[in-house]
Design a protein around this nucleic acid. Structure first.
Lengths: 202, 202
DNA sequence: GACGACATACCAACCAGTCGGTATGCAGTG
DNA sequence: CACTGCATACCGACTGGTTGGTATGTCGTC
């Protein structure tokens, strides 16, 4: 494992915990167990590390969800609900262990760094895009009108990001339950919109 | 207008724009047009300013929504939808002019400052609590089961916070439309859950 | 012996917070 | 009314530590 990879993993951990601005280059190096020379050998600036961290986050989460078993469900709506159930199941422990690097970083850097904003937007859009085809299929099957698959896919990400904020505001003890509760409302929205009898629950 | 008030208004503006950690005490003083002496006369630390800014935000937004005209609608569900329509109407311009100070700050400080986390949680809960009685009434009238008024009220805040993140990730040109789109989904969730024929739209 | 992958030493700018001081107002006292 | 005592509001130079970033050197490998 190269110094670059160690720095990216340290970045994910520290940005989730303290945010981007409050994380110093020295902290990053300490957490990764490398020196400052290594940092600036691999990244031109702290901002470049932020961009790389967002890309790294996109790639690793994208690969995880792409390989999840819900993709094998035959009905499109079940694949969509399967994604939501997986997201709910992933929420456990303190917020820094289930929250999103891109969502955290874009809040702080959306105006100060166009490059970071763009990388975070790509990460969030990537998650939405992966969901959109199944939502489009499910909409056609259930004859849903009044919105688009792209808009619904983005709304899923909206609720997930909002859930992380409410979870952070709650104490560590209630954080996970708060986030799961929000995603249950999102799930209920889908069952109402797609007019399905639901068996699964929390 | 005292130096304290000027500092609190500067804090709201700068925290929304750059976040809490990236805003320095000197910047705050510059924006407010006061000196550092005045800052530390009124606030024991930068953290204390953060707490005071969250409280100030709670008070001013709380008063604004408490005085809004939707409270005079006779039916509870119309008051709930009226709140959502008002929130949608308030979204315009760049993210830093419609986003939430508490949501922004709690992301960065939820672990590093318990006092700030608590003040932000109070601000978000305050908005939810103001909504809860009308939701409870509407639930009783429409015979809604499977969730609670408190949970639904918190979900409204969840979607609002998530909408701000997606808006920040989008460029300034699309930010407002993105956030409004998310709140339209929330509104649709309510109309489905409360089984009402809807006339109003975006 | 050239090059990529690091390490060490260092720097100017900036950071939160301190401190000695001034201006103003107000309550008490003679 | 004049004077004293003291609190509040504010000023701005200063400090010690931290920041992101740089310059230079060393080591192993092709």
């Amino acid at each position: 494992m190269t110094a670059r990879d160690k720095l990216l993993e340290a970045a994910v951990k520290l940005i989730r915990t303290n945010g981007f601005a409050a994380t110093s280059v020295d902290q990053l190096c300490g957490e990764a167990g490398v020196t400052k020379g290594a940092f600036f050998h691999h990244f031109a600036s702290k901002e470049a590390l932020g961009v790389a961290a967002a890309d790294y986050w996109s790639a690793s989460t994208g690969a995880f969800f792409a390989g999840a078993p819900f993709h094998h469900y035959p009905r499109a709506i079940d694949r969509v609900l399967g994604y939501l159930d997986l997201r709910i199941a992933l929420i456990a422990g303190p917020p820094q262990s289930f929250s999103c690097v891109a969502g955290t970083m874009v809040q702080e850097a959306f105006l100060s760094s166009e490059a970071i904003r763009f990388a975070c937007a790509a990460s969030i859009s990537g998650n939405a895009d992966a969901l959109e085809p199944d939502i489009a299929l499910a909409m056609a099957e259930a004859d849903v009108a009044g919105t688009t698959a792209a808009s619904l896919a983005r709304h899923v990400q909206t609720v997930i990001q909002g859930a992380f904020i409410l979870a952070k505001a709650d104490g560590e003890a209630e954080a996970a339950a708060t986030a799961r509760d929000a995603l249950q409302h999102l799930r209920r929205y889908f069952t109402l919109l797609f007019k399905i009898e639901d068996h699964d629950a929390d």
